[in-house]
Design a protein around this nucleic acid. Structure first.
Length: 149
DNA sequence: GCCAACGTTGGC
DNA sequence: GCCAACGTTGGC
């Protein structure tokens, strides 16, 4: 299943991913998002990278899932903002699958443009108040988005 | 900076 | 288990 991952570019951007080639998508601290990352991410799933809290807001590139069920190491680091005292190596809580850079779009597909797509009318991506940073995307939705570039 | 829409926490 | 208070996300 394709996915959309939100990120604030000041924290980690598509440019960072292009430089790193691959990264563990860590520091996600929401149980629903965690369940997607842990249980539903499959190898080679396509990933839309979305920049939030910036200008322009929108989809900036593509990645793919390259390693499943990686542990989020920040949960074990007492000095980290993302440390979780309830987590242990035996009973980890947070997961960070590895994703690999595929390509950066020549232009940002802006939020306003996404809103104009009929295929996205019902999409979780555009749902009001949707603060989830890991969002499932249907094949049809992905297709309609990729058709824009 | 504002504020709506959440998710989480903690007292009961 | 309920729910008010609080914190965070994210568009504007």
């Amino acid at each position: 299943m394709p996915w959309l991952l939100k990120t604030e570019p000041s924290t980690y951007s598509i440019q960072d991913l292009e430089r790193d080639k691959k990264t563990n998508w860590d520091c996600i601290r929401n149980y629903q998002a965690r369940n997607y990352l842990r249980d539903d991410f499959k190898l080679d799933d396509q990933i839309l990278i979305y920049h939030s809290g910036t200008e322009p807001i929108g989809i900036v590139g593509l990645a793919r899932v390259s390693k499943l069920k990686q542990l989020d190491q920040e949960q074990f680091n007492p000095k980290s903002d993302y440390f979780d005292p309830k987590a242990s190596l035996e009973k980890p809580i947070w997961y960070a699958p590895e994703i690999q850079f595929v390509r950066r779009f020549k232009r940002v597909i802006e939020l306003s443009e996404l809103r104009s797509l009929k295929a996205l009318k019902q999409s979780a991506i555009l749902k009001k108040g949707n603060r989830l940073s890991v969002i499932p995307v249907s094949a049809k939705e992905l297709e309609s988005i990729l058709a824009l570039i």
